[in-house]
Design a protein around this nucleic acid. Structure first.
Lengths: 334, 334
DNA sequence: ATATATTTTGCAACCGATTGCAAAGTTGTT
DNA sequence: AACAACTTTGCAATCGGTTGCAAAATATAT
């Protein structure tokens, strides 16, 4: 069995309180006592049991890390950032995979049973039932990389999706594209809708530009490819903005298979700037979201909320950035 | 504050034991009592605190899920499988990211402090210090998708790497390639070495075949691309077997940029059959590992070990399968 | 109805920690 | 040396549960 505080106390001939105090910072212990306890602890290999501790401190340092986006490699990058960021400050991510519509209510309950200090949801679509269930348990929630439905009050950190759409539109306009399209994942998702609004609003300022939109249903290679194949059966636009890089990559494969060229026949601009977008065989022009900043800001906010539970829900929006590569024409056509 | 067993006992006018018993299966409670308790619990919204429970049961249902492979999208697929598989049987993954050489000893200690019931390491290279540290704490470990160094005794579940190399070699031989190469990630990794051994041994049976090998240092697109670029500066083989799909994909981009064609000028066969390998614009011929089976077998083994800690370390090897796509010539050249 | 076997229940101790409080020990002042 | 002020320590209660044991309740046999 693992060595407990009792063993150390016995060995060092001191009270259990003394041992406890040397392991909680800010507690009052004399140097002499500390030395004595540390000697015994080292000898026996004692570490405080964090779960037992949590019983009295009401702090587990466990953070629920939830996502429903295990199919898009972009989220793996975010995963990496989150897990490292959390463990760097001594917090431990407890994972929940909501990919397959697992019951969000039950999942919220489970997190409560593990007394997580907070919950981070990463992904575009935060299930309303989940967030209310979790908040009802008084567990702080932060939603990152997405926007909740309008009626949900929750801390939100993401890129400015409308601006992303706007920048994409401006980029296409500047390059002289006359007929442009938007291709999104699901039509019901808030972030995708925002990107669409930003894009369409900007395009609408130029009545001579033709506009169309399509939805692929989900953010995946296959969805992008299939959607583009359908589009190519009829007359098409000369450039498309996609709500996710992975869609663009699928679409490009369809375009090329149809014997057309990117960017000569059709221009493509993606969204996210996932690592793959920079690969030389893809070289996707795309809108970059500052993932590292969003992640660290999320973690900071989580820390802050744990201190002050009453904090009012806040929204932090980050600016995007155009990353020019090779899937749009480089000069305005005239 | 959350509602506790005490609140329920008070409300239902029964003892705390009674409440506890209705929430632990196999305990002796009369139907009448159960109904009474359940009524109160439902009303108050009570769920047992799993961490408090763990104090007496010595079971947390927490499983440490460790990886040092957050850069290779193939592992995201495995991640998805593991997290879903675990939560399906009521276990919760506690994540540790070892990507950046975080101190494995400290990490092992941390997992012990959270009293995880077991640890799953997924990745090719299990740090010896880590595994001994964790086993010293009497926490069961299973290593999946990799092989530990020879001197480490630990439960191991993976594909038969030597066989993978062998199958790759046979495939190339059958298609009449006369000069073949092996391109691996790190030269020190056991799995890569095994793949090399399987490959080289098979090739060596045919003295007329030319053989060479290279190491890219790591499994990434860029590493594959750079390595191939170097190779192309001099006379090269006419087909290569890569120890990971992602290397192949990087290499293909280099080959194509050099104005050569896959498979006409150079054949490529990868390893893993990650989802991306099946994308139409890549269509990589590769060796498939049965990931779903490896994952579920790992989880089963973990459950078994938790029952019987004394179980002797065991190795489970799965067969691989060739997946033919478009990066090798389709008929023997003569 | 009584004796016996079986099931159900509550008491109290325990799991591994923390912490308020009062007693004991130090230090400084006069 | 006596006293006050402050620090350090241990006691005992507590966190939210589980569980062995004996008493109470119920079922079964005679």
């Amino acid at each position: 069995m693992a060595v407990t505080i009792k063993d150390v106390a016995l060995h060092a001939q001191v009270s259990r309180s003394a041992v406890s105090r040397t392991f909680t910072d800010g507690a009052s212990v004399s140097d002499k006592m500390r030395k004595k306890v540390e000697k015994s602890s080292d000898l026996l290999g004692y570490r405080p049991n964090l779960l037992a501790r949590s019983l009295t401190t009401n702090r587990t340092k466990l953070i629920g890390l939830i996502s429903n986006n295990y199919k898009n490699p972009f989220f793996f990058e975010i995963f990496d950032l989150f897990t490292r960021g959390l463990q760097d400050i001594g917090l431990r991510p407890l994972l929940v995979n909501l990919t397959n519509d697992e019951d969000p209510k039950a999942c919220a309950e489970l997190l409560a049973q593990y007394s997580v200090d907070a919950v981070i949801f990463m992904g575009s679509e935060l299930h309303a039932g989940f967030s209310t269930a979790i908040r009802q348990k008084d567990i702080p929630v932060v939603h990152s990389f997405g926007r909740p439905a309008d009626d949900v009050q929750v801390h939100t950190i993401s890129v400015d999706d409308k601006q992303c759409g706007q920048v994409a539109a401006q980029t296409l306009l500047k390059l002289g594209y006359k007929s442009v399209g938007f291709i999104g994942g699901g039509s019901t998702m808030q972030v995708i809708n925002d990107r669409l609004i930003g894009f369409e609003t900007e395009i609408a300022k130029h009545p001579d530009i033709k506009f169309c939109k399509h939805f692929a249903g989900t953010h995946s290679f296959v969805a992008g490819r299939n959607t583009m194949q359908k589009i190519l059966e009829k007359p098409h636009a000369d450039a498309y903005f996609f709500s996710d890089d992975i869609l663009s990559i699928g679409a490009i494969s369809a375009i090329q298979d149809a014997g057309l060229s990117v960017p000569n026949d059709i221009g493509v601009i993606g969204m996210n700037n996932m690592e793959m977008a920079g690969w030389n065989n893809i070289s996707l022009t795309t809108i970059h979201q500052p993932t590292a900043q969003i992640v660290s800001s999320t973690i900071e906010l989580v820390e802050a909320i744990m201190e002050d539970q009453e904090r009012h829900p806040e929204t932090r929006l980050f600016s995007c950035m155009l990353v020019e590569r090779s899937t749009l024409r480089s000069n305005p056509k005239n």
